[in-house]
Every structure is written in C-alpha cells, then in structure tokens.
Design a binder for these strands. Structure first.
Lengths: 206, 206
DNA sequence: TCATTTTTTGACCGCATGGCCAGAATCTAG
DNA sequence: CTAGATTCTGGCCATGCGGTCAAAAAATGA
C-alpha cells in the first residue's frame, strides 16, 4: 500500500497509522534537537529506531512528512490555546490571552514550538522559495485584523493600520520565543505580560 | 599568498584587494537572488565570472567570505543611517529615525539588506548552531536599552522592561522588511511610520 | 499449515556541496 | 629577457543528501 496524503477510498491500516505517528514524533524530536537543516531522513529514522526506507514507505517524501508535522503541531496548538482565547470578551483581553497562551504552550511543549519555527524558517520548496513563509501567515494576519477592526468599530481601540499591527504582533511573539530559546533562564511569562502591555498601549484610544 | 582575516604584517596586494571586493559583491548579489542555502561557492563564482578555486584562494573558506559580507554590509548600513539618528534630540525622535532609516536603506539597497537577513537566519556553524543568531543582536539590544533608559530617566518615557522592548522593536523592523520582500507593492515607508507610531505609543508616559 | 500480502532492511544511485591541488597562465623584478 | 612569485583554471575528492530497490522478514488469512 502506497502512502497518500488522504486515505482515499482505502482506510489506513493499524500498523500504518502507528508508524506514521511514531515517525512524526521522531521528526519533531530530531528537528527540535539538531535544527531543520540537519534533520535528514537518516537522522530521523535513527531517532525512531527504524531503517531509512521505512519513512519512504509510509510517506511520499520528506515534504509530506514535514507537512504532517506542521499539521499535527498546529492542530495541537489550536486545541490548546483557542479555548482560553474564546472565553475572552474584549479585544484587549483576547490580545493578552493570545500572547500569554503561546508563552504557556512554549513552556509546556518547547520541542513542538521549536520544530514548527524551524520548519517555517528553513523549509523551502524545490525552487528555493519558502514553503511556509509570509504567505502561510496570511490567515493568521486576517484573523488578527478582524479582531482589531471589531475593536475599532466599538471604540475599544483607536484607529490604526491593522495589517502593520498584525505583522508586528506576530513578530513580537516569534521574537519572544526565539529570545527565550537563546536565553532559557529568562521568565517567558513575564516577557509575555510585558509584550501584551506594549501592544495594548500601542492600540488603545488616546 | 594565503589569505588571512587581518593583513598581519604583509599588506594586501592590489589585485588581491580588487578580487576580494569583486567576490564579496558577487556573493551579495547571489545570496539576494537565490537565498543563502542555494548560494554555493560554485554559484557565487559563476556570478563573479571566475573559477571556483579563486574564492578558495582569496578566502580561507566560505565562512570567512560570509563574515566579510556581513562586515561590509553592516559598515555600510551604519555609515548610511547613523548620521540621521545622531542628529535627533529626544528618545522618541531617535526611535522614529531608527525605524524609518532602516526602511529607507531597504528601499535604496534591497539586495544588501536581504543578504544579511538571509545570512543571519540561515548561516550555521560546523556544530549546527546559528553563527549570527540572537547572540549577535546583543550589542544592538544594549544600544536600544541605553536609549530607553535615558528616556526613562528624564521622564520622556514611562517605566517598562527595556530588554523586552528592544527585542520587540528589532523584531518589528525585521518583520517589516520581510513582509515588504514578500509584498513589494506595499508602501514600506508608510509601514515604517505606522510601526514607529505603535512603538512610541507603547512606551510614552500615561 | 502454507500461500499471499504487507512491512522492513540495507545496499545502492545520482546529485550537490565545500574544499583541495597539480599544472598552466600571468605578473613582477632584476 | 628571464627567473621566480603570484594568480587562475579545471578536474578531483570525500561527504551527506533524498530517494529507490530487490530481497528478507513478518503478518495475515484460507
């Protein structure tokens, strides 16, 4: 049975599903440990304790494996921090919940966040262009913009450029995580609170 | 004559200096065009119109070439935008001059900014750790912190965590440039003004 | 039990990389 | 003009990569 992105028609066998999960987990562990450029199929296979060919057997190629890693981690992040965000009422509270939610997830699962960061930064398509670059962040930008616009409509926020703020907010969060990776002794949650403060002051009415 | 980082004792010959400059220019052009991971010595040599061995002859290795590229570009950036920053009086004006200065440089020399961005993101040492990562940004962070602290001392700025703000400001500038590269039709200077606005509001007194 | 299918292994392929080097070409002094 | 130093070329090397494959091993089911 050749592996496919979607189990079209045929269901995936037991062992097939288990192996895929195992290999995805090994990929996350390996990428977090040695970085994306050094996470070769051979290294990932060694982490999983299987032969290199097994990965080729269960995944169409490295690209599909990386796609599955991204999907797996992002689903997990969304499932973890979305509930805390949805229970907020105001745009300001949502912003704070977003920033601190990512920080809390980073503390609980540093490997997963590091892995998707590595993939976003380093993964490139066959033509050399980024595979998950700025384009992949577009839905997130639009989501943040919607939040800002609602706040502007009801007067909770002042008038500003939502796109610039969305890009900046996401950049601030990414940089917070990157700085913490390089300086693990710093207080990530304190950084998150301070960062949220900066953003709230930047967009509140005069 | 073997090449060295510093001309120790012996002066560098005429042709040596010319070739080094030519190869550095070719490296900048190549990295900006195809990205750091694809900018092999062979490609850079082809851009320069010389044999691959020439690079090995004039530089100790790829690492030294990349170091020279970074030094060259950073010196140029500093020479270009520092004057405009130094003539400002207040911390707020300095911040605005910093943000818009980088934007103006990006418009004038997109290849150079893109190249150092590529190098900072992708260049790794033999052990896989980043060669110009967060650690390399430390002097810049300290410089920004000094600026903030001065503003806090004389009451121009409120009290906030200077390190978090420094990390965030630099991240916002980097993201501005990255977004512009992906969306070249957007108004970079307008983004810079808006970004400076966000930052000024984030740190001004209540 | 035993034939069939699924899964795994380990060797192998083509390719690109950074670096090396013998010899040719070029430049420079005496 | 000529001898020596400098510079350049083009081919070569070892390494690591993603991917493929025949054959072995394991699981499955009649």
């Amino acid at each position: 049975m050749r592996s496919k992105n979607e189990p079209s028609g045929q269901k995936r066998s037991f062992i097939e599903e288990a192996r895929r999960e195992q290999i995805i987990a090994a990929a996350i562990e390996t990428i977090a440990a040695v970085g994306f450029p050094r996470a070769s199929l051979a290294r990932i296979a060694a982490t999983a304790g299987v032969s290199k060919g097994v990965i080729s057997y269960h995944f169409a190629g490295k690209d599909e494996l990386v796609d599955q890693v991204v999907t797996t981690v992002y689903t997990d992040i969304a499932d973890t921090i979305l509930p805390g965000i949805l229970e907020q009422e105001t745009a300001t509270d949502i912003l704070r919940a977003h920033v601190t939610g990512v920080a809390e997830y980073a503390l609980a699962h540093p490997d997963r966040l590091r892995t998707v960061t590595e993939i976003f930064v380093h993964a490139r398509g066959a033509d050399g262009t980024p595979r998950y670059g700025v384009v992949a962040a577009e839905p997130l930008y639009e989501s943040l913009e919607g939040l800002y616009r609602e706040g502007q409509r009801n007067g909770e926020l002042r008038v500003f450029d939502p796109r610039v703020m969305a890009v900046t907010q996401q950049a601030g969060i990414d940089a917070m995580f990157g700085y913490w990776l390089a300086h693990p002794d710093t207080d990530l949650l304190a950084h998150a609170r301070e960062l949220a403060d900066l953003f709230v002051r930047a967009i509140r009415p005069d």
